[in-house]
Design a protein around this nucleic acid. Structure first.
Lengths: 261, 261
DNA sequence: GAGTGGTCTAGACCACGAC
DNA sequence: TCGTGGTCTAGACCACTCG
């Protein structure tokens, strides 16, 4: 089961670069040059051990580098594979425009339908709670808020989970406090209830996921999350909702339009 | 040199969870609860080996998990430390507004001054080249482009590097093709040359850095990059510049404003 | 020099997946 | 059953930092 010679290089014993880094470099170069493509199986640990004449831990060290870079994923009992790049969803900056709500659709559904993919929501949870310091500050320090948690899936894959927070005086007793907020989502209900929306502020960060986020989004090693915090303002300048969203970074590209004036 | 008992838990031999994951869980919990703070030194590998009664590789495995999560950084010969969170720069959605340019400042400088930090630019490189397929498509398929590469540092730390691409017919022979494009940067020069800017489109992705990007930005393990591609349009609807930026994700928060209409 | 993490070896046994 | 990766051991030597 020898590897084709020339597929991977040979080690440079004179190099200062650690052996496992050299092996990682060889594999990365092979991936970059297309000798291994998305979903392809990389040589097994045993094959790499034999090819390079090193111990197994050295080979595993090399492979773990590639996994940390998001280039490879291992599957127990099957092998190590070039990580497939899932299709990305492009979130446009007009995704909360009223014309989409007016069609009776929520923002997530609008995007999914436009892309021709199947979307689902699960894990819906609606409850009243005491806001975190951050959420409280953004909403003008309400004592309690309504929290709406849910997870979104595209073609069966979880891609984001989000929590909307609304001041209780706005949400309590409305359909917003119901599991199903009705067509157009909570933004449509807010406007019906006299909170005409003016604009949204979004803050974007990227970081590595917590173990809980890895579970929620089924994230492979080497895949960061995008953390998006959106605040909705009505025409009176009041913050009426804060939405905290954690997204699988390999599933999205966010698009915005900026003024030049 | 025994660790204070109770600082870290003890292993649960009946658990299915791997020993190194249990150790990582203990350390993570201690960090989350503030028993170790930013910049604090974690117990040394030797101390952890003695405390848990496991081999060194098991301890190193646990520590590498925390590093992959961006929670810890190791320093050769010193120890493993809780990763310090650098101050983030907030990039506002009006950062390319004309009023900032009119003051003779570039966008990066405006942000830096507002935050009261020292900013530098290095590695400036200006050259004509054949555009990549992606850049070419965004710019309306010019045969050649002017590329302006540079790296930005805040208080001495590299935080982003960027390349601006402009169609040659726009840039050649202007101050845009000079190392120093003059006050207000290339956007000011574009407007002087009759390309009045209308708006910018920005696309945002997040991913793990390539080894080259790790070097350029001095990134710790477990820190992703934000990849931002901005296209500038003039009032005639022509794409006059594409700027490709790679940013250390732990140094920025991006802010945008979205219309509700 | 003492303590730290970085690299590497040569094994072992286990859990999972495919045939 | 066999090949795969997952976990773990018990060492070794090295490079770096600090006092």
């Amino acid at each position: 089961m020898a590897l084709p010679s020339g597929l991977l290089g040979t080690l440079d014993p004179t190099s200062d670069r650690a052996v496992f880094r050299q092996i990682a470099d060889h594999l990365r170069e092979s991936i970059d040059k297309g000798r291994f493509r998305e979903g392809d199986k990389l040589p097994s640990e045993t094959e790499l051990v034999e090819h390079y004449g090193v111990s197994r831990m050295t080979v595993r060290n090399a492979l773990s580098i590639l996994q940390g870079e998001g280039l490879a994923v291992s599957e127990h009992g099957r092998g190590v594979f070039v990580r497939p790049r899932p299709p990305v969803r492009r979130l446009a900056s007009d995704r909360f425009a009223r014309r989409h709500r007016d069609q009776g659709k929520s923002a997530f559904t609008v995007e999914a339908e436009a892309a021709g993919v199947h979307s689902e929501v699960d894990g819906l949870e609606v409850k009243e709670e005491k806001p975190s310091q951050d959420v409280s500050a953004r909403l003008g320090s309400p004592r309690k808020v309504l929290a709406r948690r849910r997870r979104y899936l595209i073609d069966g894959r979880p891609v984001e989970f989000a929590t909307s927070y609304l001041p209780l005086d706005i949400a309590r007793g409305t359909q917003i406090a119901e599991p199903n907020p009705g067509p157009g989502g909570i933004y449509a209900r807010l406007e019906e209830n006299g909170h005409r929306l003016d604009h949204f502020d979004e803050e974007i960060r990227a970081r590595m996921p917590s173990p809980q986020e890895v579970r929620m989004l089924h994230l492979a090693t080497g895949v960061p999350v995008i953390h998006l915090i959106r605040t909705a303002y009505d025409t009176e300048g009041r913050a009426v909702e804060v939405c905290d969203t954690v997204m699988a970074a390999d599933a999205f590209v966010l698009a915005y339009q900026l003024p030049a004036t």
